[in-house]
Design a protein around this nucleic acid. Structure first.
Length: 284
DNA sequence: GCGACAG
DNA sequence: ATCTTGTCGC
């Protein structure tokens, strides 16, 4: 944490971001960022108290991380070895969960939503929201370092653990096979599936028919890392990939099974509504 | 070196 | 992700 904090403090955040993303070409087309103020406020707070306090993520999630961008990537490579693609979930799962993250105060606060539903009826059983000060900028490929702490906090607030969790983002369909859903699954020890709206890494293996339920493998460096799933006709396909303790096949099956009349499966749709404060949310 | 890049 | 109005299609 210290190293990254120094890097961010001693350099213009926009430069750090550009360098982290691709190192060269992007250095010239720096993108606007709005978390400079929030970072500054946090540093001030941390320096007064002498430690990172709330910004410190659960130890197990980032154990061994030196706080650097390179260190984050190295940790992902290490943790990805712990991902299991063996179907482990209670079959059929009775209680499933949806997780998503949103931001407040122009990005200063990270808000995570966790929703528990009955796998069969789709009935919302419980819903919780957790808030933590934002501690990381968004860096493609390192999303979990920004959103995982809040997600784990929301999970901790649930009255019971789900048999299967759906997380907004990639599972193993990631450059180092550790998208936020896989990171979350490994750290929490939960069967988990990643449901993203866009591809991060990989290429669709063929054309995707515009028919509900149609799917095509997503492959990266010669291996299948997930699927492109047409959850609804005339809608952009979802990017589904196993996160942890779920097989490639089960990942799509379970996801499609939870899709109702909307594009997103019910668990993530509910979590999305809560996290982004959109109507249609059920708070219990 | 260039372009792509979850939320 | 977030900032925002209208608009096309089922």
């Amino acid at each position: 944490m210290i190293a990254l904090r120094r890097v961010l403090r001693d350099t213009d955040p926009r430069e750090v971001h550009a360098r982290a993303v691709d190192g060269t070409a992007a250095e010239r087309r720096v993108r606007p960022m709005r978390f400079r103020a929030s970072r500054q406020a946090q540093w001030d707070m941390e320096e007064r108290s002498g430690h990172a306090s709330l910004a410190t993520p659960p130890a197990a999630a980032f154990e061994g991380w030196d706080g650097s961008i390179a260190g984050a990537r190295a940790l992902q490579a290490r943790l990805s070895a712990r991902v299991s693609l063996q179907d482990d979930a209670a079959s059929p799962p009775r209680v499933i969960a949806g997780f998503d993250v949103g931001f407040e105060d122009g990005g200063e606060t990270t808000r995570a939503a966790a929703v528990l539903l009955d796998a069969d009826s789709g009935q919302v059983l419980h819903a919780r929201i957790a808030r933590l000060p934002t501690s990381m900028p968004y860096v493609p490929g390192l999303l979990s370092f920004r959103e995982l702490p809040a997600l784990l906090e929301a999970l901790a607030q649930l009255p019971l653990r789900p048999d299967l969790a759906f997380v907004d983002g990639q599972g193993i369909a990631h450059p180092r096979r550790l998208g936020i859903a896989a990171h979350f699954g490994v750290v929490a020890g939960l069967p988990c599936i990643g449901v993203a709206k866009k591809i991060l890494a990989g290429t669709p293996d063929g054309e995707l028919p515009d028919v509900r339920g149609a799917r095509v493998p997503l492959r990266h460096r010669g291996e299948q890392v997930g699927w492109l799933l047409r959850s609804k006709p005339r809608c952009l396909p979802l990017v589904v990939s196993p996160g942890h303790r779920v097989s490639m096949e089960t990942a799509v099956e379970m996801t499609m099974r939870q899709v109702g009349r909307y594009r997103l499966p019910e668990p993530t749709r509910q979590a999305d509504a809560l996290a982004s404060r959109r109507p249609g949310a059920t708070l219990l």
